[in-house]
Simulated scan of single mutants.
Amino acid sequence: MNLGQIKSYKPITPSMRHVKTVNLSNLDRTEINFLSKPYKQSSGRNNKGRITVKGRGGGPKKNNKLIDFHYNQVGVPGIVVSVEFDCNRSSFINLIRYDNGFLSYRLNAHGIYAGDKFIITKNIRFDNGFSSELKFIPEGSYIYNVELRPDRGGSIARAAGVKSILLSKDRNKATLKLPSKEIIELSCNCKATIGVVSNIYHRDRSTGNFGKAKKKGRRPSVRGVAKNPIDHPHGGGEGKKSKRKDVVNFKGRLKRGQKTSRLYKHTILTNKINKILFQ
Rank of each mutant, 00 (worst) to 15 (best):
N94G: 00
G101T: 02
V225Y: 06
T260E: 15
L24M: 06
I96N: 02
G239L: 07
I112P: 01
A192H: 02
N228Q: 14
V22A: 07
G161K: 05
S90Y: 04
L178N: 10
L66K: 04
P14M: 03
G153M: 07
G239M: 03
F118P: 00
Q5K: 11
K227E: 11
E31S: 12
G78W: 01
S131C: 10
D151H: 13
K61C: 01
F136C: 12
K255D: 01
Q5D: 14
V83K: 06
P38E: 13
I67Y: 07
G236T: 04
V19M: 15
L186D: 00
Q279H: 12
T207P: 04
L24H: 15
G55I: 11
M1E: 15
T52G: 01
L269M: 13
D68A: 14
E139I: 15
G224R: 06
Y105M: 03
T21Q: 08
E84M: 06
N199P: 01
S164I: 02
S82R: 15
D127V: 07
F85L: 03
N63H: 10
E182W: 11
N123V: 12
I32D: 06
V83F: 06
M16G: 11
K65I: 05
I200E: 15
V248P: 06
T175M: 12
H110L: 13
N33G: 07
T207E: 08
T175L: 05
N2K: 12
D246S: 03
T121I: 14
E182G: 03
G78C: 08
N64D: 08
L3M: 00
K216V: 01
V247F: 05
T260C: 09
K215D: 11
S198W: 06
I273Q: 15
S206R: 04
I6T: 11
T121M: 06
Q279E: 15
N26Q: 15
K241W: 10
S206G: 00
A157I: 01
F92R: 09
D246T: 08
P138C: 03
N172F: 08
R50E: 14
Y113S: 02
G44M: 02
I268M: 06
Y201P: 02
Q41H: 08
G235C: 00
R50G: 09
K214W: 13
K122M: 01
K177G: 04
S242D: 12
N46V: 03
T270N: 13
G4P: 03
K48A: 11
E185K: 12
P11C: 04
H202Q: 14
D170W: 02
G58R: 05
N228C: 08
H234W: 08
N47T: 08
P77Y: 07
P229L: 11
K163H: 11
S141M: 14
P233N: 11
K245E: 09
G140S: 05
R253Q: 09
N100I: 03
C188M: 14
K275A: 11
I51S: 09
D204S: 10
T21D: 12
T193A: 02
H266W: 03
I194C: 01
G115C: 05
K275D: 13
K265Q: 11
S25M: 09
I6L: 13
N46M: 08
G237K: 08
F278E: 12
K241R: 13
Y142V: 01
I184F: 02
I112A: 07
V162L: 04
V248E: 07
L134F: 02
R219I: 13
I119L: 14
I200F: 10
